[in-house]
Design a protein around this nucleic acid. Structure first.
Lengths: 246, 246
DNA sequence: CGTCGGCTTGAGGGAAATCAAACGATGTGG
DNA sequence: CCACATCGTTTGATTTCCCTCAAGCCGACG
């Protein structure tokens, strides 16, 4: 559940402290809360004095436009810290919503701030989260701004497979993807209809298949070559490792 | 040059400390460096142990895909801190490039880290920057994922007008926009050709005109109503203030 | 004076959206 | 237990927004 080797981090010597910080944080967040799929951990425009650490399940940041268009801005997996930004910017225009049933542990912002001040490892852990969030947002911007539908879908699969792999939640050739095609569309800036068509093409060309919630990657090399242009260095490295193994 | 009232910040009582932190930071960054338009402050994939505070000019984060497609991920204006993330993730896949001639002041990451530990106001200043960067990235994701060309251009203009206004670099009805149409396209995920067409339409309908580098906003209400769906709360508030005044 | 970068406009094409409808699984209440 | 509603997926037909390709224009600059 904690950052592990291979994670995007340029100074491996920090890894131990990062884990230490995470462990310490978890220990000081005994209170947990459970949510059902679709529930809001924080509603849009709602004030929140709490920072969450996702323990199980999937969360996302979403924004719904006045006319109903919807965008999933980021996807959070177990281990991620959510809501650090709200320490300064509150309420945020975005909601934090459950994609699956989820459990989170809680900490008051003020308490976390204090911990960060007192303990360098916790500070490192928080910094790493902010840094990682930003990396992912950059990648989203690249994909949405310059990627076509195929590239967006392929890179999403590569990215999620890598993140889930770090958590021990993926096998060599697949993982569980608890998103509806509508939600995939909302994440990638596409319509359901088009997501469906792209997935069909990928299935028919034997690259990946999505049966229900189960993703199976049949041809890593092909998937990587589709996603490649919009991957960042870290993702590309991870994808190549996969390709090599297959 | 420092964060001022009206800035996206939910606790106005922090404003003074924020300014204090910024002032302190500036005082400990006596060394400055000048760059020409187009020059790279940090090249893509280059290691950097330095954090920059932009003093004058415009910078941007960019990524160029292997096949030449280019995306401007973020635009930085005077007062912004750039490169904080590189403390943990280094080198980054993105470059930091000058959109205009620019001067920056420098500080070593390690020295900044120490300052942050020692001084709460500086820590606040750094946190605020991270928070603000993320807010802007969220907005980019919304615009790129769900906005059409008109909305993207209108919201860019509203956003820049607001940020420049805070810096005293905009008048009530306009500002200087030192971007080529190509760069606007790279920022908004559009082609030059299309940017040009949208700008023409906006000009012909008497909403805004871009003559050379000078933006003049003729009809705030119209611009706001185009941009509105993809604006966040803060931008919307700012745009309404403008509309009311005009 | 020629060239180069940026702006502008036209014609045509294509990727993805929209509109519309059917299908299968799941659930549920009479 | 079956009729029926709901939710997600799938597919077809049509439209539209934006891209691509192409070329002309203008001002700056050597």
């Amino acid at each position: 559940m904690t950052p592990s080797p291979g994670y995007p981090l340029h100074r491996p010597e920090l890894l131990d402290r990062l884990r230490e910080g995470d462990a310490l944080l978890v220990r000081t967040m005994p209170e947990t809360k459970a949510f059902g799929a679709g529930e809001h951990v924080i509603a849009a425009e709602e004030r929140s004095e709490t920072v969450y650490r996702l323990q199980t399940g999937w969360l996302c940041r979403t924004r719904t436009l006045p006319d109903g268009r919807r965008q999933i801005i980021a996807i959070f997996l177990p281990g991620d810290l959510c809501g650090v930004r709200s320490m300064l910017l509150n309420p945020q225009p975005e909601g934090l919503q459950c994609l699956t049933p989820a459990t989170v542990s809680l900490i008051e912002q003020s308490r976390l701030a204090e911990l960060v001040r007192m303990n360098g490892s916790v500070a490192l852990r928080v910094m790493w989260q902010l840094s990682e969030d930003e990396r992912r947002l950059h990648n989203s911007v690249i994909g949405l701004g310059r990627g076509n539908a195929d590239e967006r879908i392929a890179s999403m699969l590569v990215d999620l497979r890598e993140r889930l792999g770090q958590l021990g939640l993926a096998t060599d050739d697949g993982f569980r993807l608890p998103l509806t095609q509508q939600q995939i569309g909302d994440y990638l800036g596409l319509t359901v209809v088009h997501v469906n068509r792209v997935l069909r093409r990928l299935r028919e060309s034997g690259v990946v298949s999505l049966a229900g919630k189960a993703v199976t990657i049949h041809d890593w090399a092909a998937l990587e070559s589709i996603a490649n242009p919009v991957l960042d260095v870290f993702e590309r490295r991870a994808a190549r490792r996969r390709t090599a193994r297959a």
